[in-house]
Design a binder for these strands. Structure first.
Lengths: 224, 224
DNA sequence: CACTCGCAACCTGCATACAGATGCCGTTCC
DNA sequence: GGAACGGCATCTGTATGCAGGTTGCGAGTG
């Protein structure tokens, strides 16, 4: 990490790690859309490096599942099938459930307090209808759950799954009334965690994500 | 896939995909031990290719979590810390639980029958004390559970986690009485799945893996 | 007019060459 | 005698060139 940063200054180009992050960002934020081709030469000139590091970055993104690769073809931003998308949403709900359950059992006092504060603070965003800000809060909120589970491998899995799902849930908070509903569901999760009620926390988190998945599935199917 | 195979004949060297598989195999079977360095030049000469495809293979293995990489250092077979190892075993138990639960709900009649047959057939291996064969059966048995969940993303996660855990659970069936115990636990899982009792299946699978994890953790700590 | 075959441009896969970084070891100085 | 510094060997990171595969377009034919 530190070395990478040092290089950032020295070299005119970009390191592979930076490219991976940059491209992954473009994918999850929607700057590049699913199905779009990622031409090595184009990317190389764009990042001002040769094709070699670009290839390595693409291979890593492929292993992460963000782009698909097949022999002698351009890498393409993964455009998952409906059934696979569904399996990811379902898996996400399971993972969230696990995280909430473990969080209820394992979060430190500080973590519980921080989660509650984060949650309470989001109420004004709901009232203001600040979708963008609420989305940011939402990410933070869920990340706290993932960390609170105190299980690094689960954290990796859930983080990676979320990244792969990101392109398909962007418009989520635009649905009317979704903000208030999300807040309420968060509230149930937080309450259960504060009470150290693992089962309730797990179920609340599972439903929360499962509901979101339904809404987004509709959106995705609608061709967003 | 097909194209790769065609090339296998034409070119003297090896493709990146083949190398990834080969190296991953060496790691999970213990041919290369955790902590061992993977020198690019050595691997290149060993596979009769240049360093470029080796680098790509190593990067992919890095993304899979099988090898660790840091700037300007050789890739090393991941030697996970105790706490991370523990988190993987815990995650594995959760994932197995999910698979068994979903299998109980979703397996087709054929899948249930095949699972039961596979299981019943393993009894003679237990009596014979055939550890190697039982290990093979065990892999097949669990793979059936993973597939039976009918969730591709969960399948990917559980498969990848199992691959990363493989180096640490090798000696598992050498423990006295472990074969019989494993069979009995499998029996509970199968029974619950046949009965379509999702909760029981999930719990049985969770305990099954959690128990194994304890035994293996001891082994790993002992320095196997 | 549609369909097929062939060619050409383009792109990926890999090898090789070079630059930069790291670590080790011997030497030197305190 | 020990520690610090410098040089060398080695390995990683990247650029570039070449070979093979794929695609798309155009000409020719039914």
């Amino acid at each position: 990490m530190k070395q990478v940063r040092r290089r950032e200054v020295i070299r005119t180009g970009t390191t592979v790690e930076q490219m991976v992050r940059a491209i992954a960002d473009m994918i999850v934020t929607g700057a590049i859309l699913p199905g779009e081709k990622l031409d090595e030469i184009t990317l190389a000139s764009r990042f001002e490096v040769s094709r070699t590091p670009v290839r390595e970055a693409l291979r890593e993104l492929g292993a992460m599942g963000l782009v698909g690769r097949e022999p002698n073809r351009s890498a393409v931003v993964t455009n998952v099938t409906g059934t696979y998308l569904h399996s990811m949403f379902e898996a996400m709900a399971e993972l969230e459930g696990i995280c909430a359950r473990l969080s209820a059992e394992r979060m430190t006092v500080d973590e519980r307090r921080a989660l509650e504060l984060e949650h309470r603070g989001s109420m004004r965003l709901v009232h203001a209808g600040a979708e963008e800000d609420y989305a940011a809060h939402n990410t933070e909120f869920h990340t706290r759950l993932y960390r609170g589970a105190h299980n690094d491998h689960v954290f990796e899995m859930v983080t990676q799954t979320r990244a792969r799902l990101a392109p398909f849930r962007r418009a989520q908070f635009r649905l009317p009334g979704r903000l208030a509903k999300s807040y309420e569901e968060h509230d149930q999760i937080v309450t259960a965690i504060i009470r150290a009620d693992a089962v309730a926390a797990g179920q609340a988190a599972y439903s929360h994500v499962a509901i979101v998945s339904d809404a987004s599935a509709v959106f995705a199917a609608a061709g967003e």
